[in-house]
């Protein structure tokens, strides 16, 4: 298969970016999207040009590192996958493909297609945990959890922190990301103890870091590679309002 690629190039955080056009041919339809970019980079290196910089690591859809905005969609034209799981068979021979970095105020571009998503870690550091240290915990089976809540918690806990929800949101909101962590812990007895403080601290941090507000467009749910649902945002709102009323720690 042959493709024309329009790729965002930007030397560093301060430089002005631009689209560059590249041609690539003889790509197997079984090839993954990132392997296609690997092949492009090999041709660039052979010409002593600077290869295209993009984040990637596990290449099996779980580390959350890959982050390409392909033809106007985070992780490209397939559902429930990350960029590294996208295969060229999803495109037509001769297609022109536009590749951009995640774009959000809270995710500044580092170089080319690589962005800084440190803000997501900062939100977790503000409260996305059960405040315990190692040792002194009870026997695992002394904390029974209903299968239903355990399954719902797992649904939410599957978030890989890739930031597709932020990239696709017209407000660049991190609501789905925050909602996934708040839900995961609020659904479990272990997380209930400090649920009120957690939600207030995480939401406050999200706002501080320049993420936008949620206007319920649902784009995040549509593009989430792990199918995290909007129900979690509803649960986050419920937890937030409840905490706002009952907690001494005001937002």
């Amino acid at each position: 298969m042959d493709f024309t690629l329009k790729i965002w190039r930007q030397e560093n955080a301060k430089a002005k970016g631009r689209f560059e056009t590249y041609k690539i041919s003889n790509i197997s339809s079984d090839c993954s999207f990132l392997e296609m970019l690997d092949q492009l980079n090999e041709t660039l290196v052979d010409k002593i040009e600077i290869p295209i910089c993009f984040d990637h690591d596990c290449r099996e859809g779980i580390c959350g590192m890959c982050s390409l905005y392909i033809n106007g969609r985070p992780h490209g034209p397939d559902d429930d996958i990350t960029t590294c799981q996208l295969h060229m068979r999803k495109f037509k021979d001769g297609d022109t493909i536009t590749i951009e970095p995640w774009r959000a105020k809270a995710f500044p571009v580092i170089k080319d297609l690589m962005v800084d998503r440190n803000a997501l870690d900062k939100i977790i550091q503000a409260g996305g945990y059960v405040s315990i240290s190692t040792g002194g915990v009870p026997d695992a089976n002394s904390i029974p959890v209903s299968k239903k809540n355990s399954d719902l918690a797992m649904d939410a806990a599957q978030c890989i922190g890739c930031g597709a929800c932020v990239a696709t949101c017209k407000n660049a909101s991190a609501m789905l990301f925050v909602a996934a962590k708040v839900s995961h812990l609020a659904l479990l007895p272990q997380g209930k103890v400090e649920a009120k403080e957690r939600v207030l601290r995480m939401v406050r941090k999200m706002d501080e870091l320049g993420f936008g507000n949620c206007t319920n467009t649902g784009a995040c749910e549509a593009e989430c590679p792990k199918s995290i649902t909007l129900t979690n945002i509803a649960r986050l709102n419920r937890e937030f309002i409840f905490a706002g009323i009952l907690s001494e720690d005001k937002y």
Binding site: V130, P144, H184
Partner: peptide, 22 residues
Amino acid sequence: NNIIDQCVAQGVPFAREYGGLL
């Protein structure tokens, strides 16, 4: 065994039976 206890206390959502146990 301590590892499982520690992880459950952190909120790791291990698979459970209908009775609520692991």
